[in-house]
Structure formats: C-alpha cells, structure tokens
Amino acid sequence: MTLFALLLVSGLLLYIVRVLEKAHGALAHAKGIPHQPLPAFFYPVAISLVMIAAWWSTLDQPESSSDKETTGTAMLEEKKDSLWHAPDTADWQQLSNVEQLRYGRDLIANTSHYLGPKGTVAAITNGMNCQNCHLEAGTKPFGNNYSAVYSTYPKFRERSGAIESIPKRVNDCLERSLNGKAIDTSSTEMQAIVAYIRWLGTGVEPQVKPKGSGLQELAFLDRAADPAKGALAYSAKCQSCHGSEGKGVLNAAASGYTYPPLWGDHSYNSGAGHFRLSRFAGYIHANMPLGATHNNPQLSEEEAWDLAAFINSQPRPKKDLRKDWPNPAGKPIDHPFGPYSDGFSEEQHKYGPFGPIKKARSTQQAAKGKTLASR
C-alpha cells in the first residue's frame, strides 16, 4: 500500500470513529444515560500512530524469493535485449594485469606493427590488422566484436570438426584473414590477446551471445548476388578509400594499412570468414562505408550483397582447405567449396540464391528426423 493510500484509509477510519463517538453521546443523552467521551489525548495519539505506520510502510522490506526471482528474470531479459557495449578501459587501473591488457588491445589494433612484413616481434602476416575485420579493436556493435568469444569458447566448430579454444581461434584468423602463420599459444602475444578478449567478455553470462555480438545477419536475396552490380557500387562507394584495384592504402611508415586491401596478394585468403558472402555482406551493411553503423547504414542490403559478391570474385591468396569441414553436411549454405551433401553447385553456394538451398536442407533434415523416429 502506498503512503498516500494508507493516510487516506487511516483518516477515513478516524473520521468514522469520531462520528460514531458523537452518535453514541447523542443517544446516551437522549436516554439519560451517562456518557463518557473519549479522552482528549485519543486523537493526537491515534494520528501519531497512523503517521508512524505510514512512515514504516515506506521503508524497504525484504523481497520474498518469488519477488527476487521475478526481478532477476526481468533484469536478465532486459540485459539480453540491450545492445552490448564494451566495458570501460578506465577500469583497467584497478586490475593487476593492466599492461597485459594494453598490449593485447594494441596487438588487435596495430597487428602489423608487431607481426606484419616489418613486424617488431615477427614478420608473419600480410600487413593487415585484426581490427580491419574486428572493428575498433573488437568493440564495435555488429562490427565483428569479441563480446561473445569468452562466453562461448571452448566450443565445437564444424569447420575443424573439433572443440576449439580461444588461442586456436586467434591463430585461425592469423592464418586466414591475415594470410599468415600461427603464433605459439604460450607466447606473450597470445596470452595478451586472450586476456584482452576475456576482459571484453566481462559480465557476459556463459553460453550467451549479447545483442550486437559478431555480425549482422541479412535476409537472403531472392536472386543470386551480382558481381557486376557490386562493381558499380564499389566505384561509387568504396574505391575512394580502398583504391580502384582494391589494394588499399599503406600508412606513412609503409608498415601497415590505413585502409586495408580487399583483394590481391596482401588481402584475406580463400579460407577467411569474409570469403563467405553472408558474413561479408553483413559486415559491409552495418559498417561500410566509413561512418556507417548497424542502425544508420549507408548502403541497402542488396548493395551489400552485390558488393560482397564483387569483392569476393576478385583474385586473392588461396588456402589449402582439404582438412576443413570433415563433415560435408555441416558446411554453411554459403561455403563456396564442395563437396556438398545437398546437390547444389559451387557457383550457387558462393553467390546464391541461397533460399532454395536452405529449403532443400530443411527438407533433408525433416526426412532424416522421420527416419530416426521410425526406428
């Protein structure tokens, strides 16, 4: 009961008592019966007690277990619906491994300085930085951020057919997106990167992927993505930064890229995540050109699909993928290399339309489920 309601009800009860007391006095007087009125201090005392009760009702009372459960559930749902934002680096000063975190973040932001062709630690990558794909050092919502990495790893991945750790996943990026070599998982560099990724997952519950994690998922087109249309969009929206030949722009020291190459010898190879059209189209739509965000895109979804098709139709380094996807049925719809278990061509798996593939796979899964149920 609210304070106002309690005062209102209490005042009404006092009024009723007063009326009854007067009525009793009048009746006693009419019958000649002696009447003893309420003592003078009754009303001040009663009002004081009412005020104390009202004050007491405003104090916080312990929640019941059901109240706590309801509140906790509501807070969890609200947290799930809230867009993820990276924790504040200002909090690092309170941590014992602040220097390790700084180094880990710098390795993501300036990978080429340490591991590029002129790397101060090792010369093992193509000159791109991790944050060319994982924007703003892995912190941008829908910018391929790291928010869900620590909460979901180790985990089984169909691509390797094995349970993978965070260091394994980091090395995958070095070998594929940066077309380089793996680093020792016990090295100072790997430990710093893992510590930084762990810190970015602060507050994320186990097995939870926060809203805004990873990449934006776009609806499939009802046609194949068109490299020719993508070439027109590239000329209009992309080549001012990445160049007409997709070579990117080197920084002043020529030790890395201000704008990364999108194809050619120094770009990501054919085993990178961006070589899958759905992944790359989602990345483009939410983040490109420079200044775009997931809620303020500068390209239509169709343009993003066509741009991804154009860029991924250009020459780039090849990776030996013979050990990838040991179970062909586990390949994503847009994995561009066979063999497949669904009968569709490599061309359609690369450019689409993807709807028929998805429908055929759903039919296969339903049939398989019925077969298993009948055994």
Rank of each mutant, 00 (worst) to 15 (best):
W84Q: 06
A228H: 07
E189Q: 09
K359F: 11
V9Q: 12
G212S: 02
P39K: 13
A23T: 11
G352M: 01
S96R: 10
S96Y: 04
P289H: 05
G104T: 05
P315W: 08
G338K: 07
S66L: 14
S244D: 14
T71L: 15
I197C: 09
Q348L: 08
L218R: 00
Q298W: 01
N269I: 06
L250C: 02
P328D: 07
P141C: 08
Q365N: 12
S66P: 04
A195S: 08
N110S: 13
Y43Q: 05
S313C: 04
K80R: 15
Y268T: 10
K168S: 09
G32R: 11
R198H: 13
G369V: 00
L277N: 02
A252G: 12
P39S: 12
T58E: 12
K68G: 09
P62G: 09
Q216V: 11
C133Q: 02
C241P: 09
E301L: 08
T202C: 04
H24L: 13
K181D: 10
H266P: 02
E245H: 13
G243W: 10
K209I: 06
L135P: 06
S313N: 11
W84Y: 14
D81T: 07
P37Y: 04
N312E: 14
S64W: 02
L135C: 07
A53T: 12
G212W: 00
L115K: 03
G343N: 10
S96D: 13
I52G: 10
W92A: 03
E175L: 03
P44G: 07
S96W: 04
K209E: 15
A360N: 04
Y153E: 05
G25D: 05
S313E: 05
I193P: 02
W84I: 11
Y340N: 08
A182E: 07
G116Y: 09
S64G: 13
D67T: 11
G338N: 08
R176K: 14
P44K: 04
I284W: 00
V121R: 09
G246A: 13
N144G: 12
L372S: 06
G201Q: 07
E63H: 06
L115G: 03
Q93S: 15
H266N: 14
K368H: 13
L107D: 01
P260Q: 12
G11S: 15
T139V: 05
T185W: 01
D226N: 14
L290H: 10
E164W: 05
Q364D: 10
P210K: 06
A373W: 06
M288L: 15
